[in-house]
C-alpha cells in the first residue's frame, strides 16, 4: 500500500516534533517506504473476527489505599531540569508571536 512521499514524512516529523533536515527527509522517505511496505504484510492475515490484543496479560485496575507517602523533594525534581527559576521549571514561551 504505502509509497510514502517526502511531504508525508515532513508531516510525520512535524507531528512527532522532530525538526528534521532536508537531507534526512530524503533518507527517511526511502527507508520508511521500505519498512512500511514490509510491515503492511500484517494485512495478509484474515483476522476479521479476531479480537485485538493490547496487552499480553489480562489487566485489571489495581487500587491502593489513598495514603500520603514520600515523593521527590522540589530540589530533586528540579535537579535534572535544563533550566529552573524560582523553584520552578523554566520553559520557553508557549505562545506564538502572532498570539
Amino acid at each position: 500500500m504505502p509509497n510514502i512521499s517526502r511531504d508525508e514524512v515532513a508531516h510525520l516529523a512535524r507531528l512527532a516534533r522532530l525538526a528534521v533536515t532536508e537531507d534526512e527527509l530524503d533518507t527517511f522517505a526511502g527507508q520508511l517506504d521500505v519498512i512500511l511496505q514490509s510491515v503492511a504484510r500484517v494485512g495478509e492475515v484474515a483476522a476479521e473476527d479476531i479480537p485485538p490484543t493490547s496487552h499480553a496479560v489480562p489487566l485489571t485496575n489495581v487500587f491502593r489505599e489513598d495514603l500520603v507517602r514520600p515523593g521527590l523533594t522540589q530540589q530533586q525534581a528540579l535537579a535534572g531540569a535544563p533550566a529552573a527559576e524560582d523553584g520552578r521549571f523554566r520553559v520557553p514561551r508557549i505562545l506564538g508571536e502572532e498570539a
Binding site: A16, R17, L18, V20, E24, F28, L32, I35, L36
Partner: peptide, 19 residues
C-alpha cells in the same frame, strides 16, 4: 531538541509509530 538528541533509528521508529 528532539532532532539533536535522538539518533536516526529512534526518529524512524517514532515516525513509523506516528504513521
Amino acid at each position: 531538541t528532539r532532532e539533536a538528541g535522538f539518533g536516526a533509528e529512534v526518529k524512524r521508529r517514532i515516525m513509523i509509530g506516528t504513521y
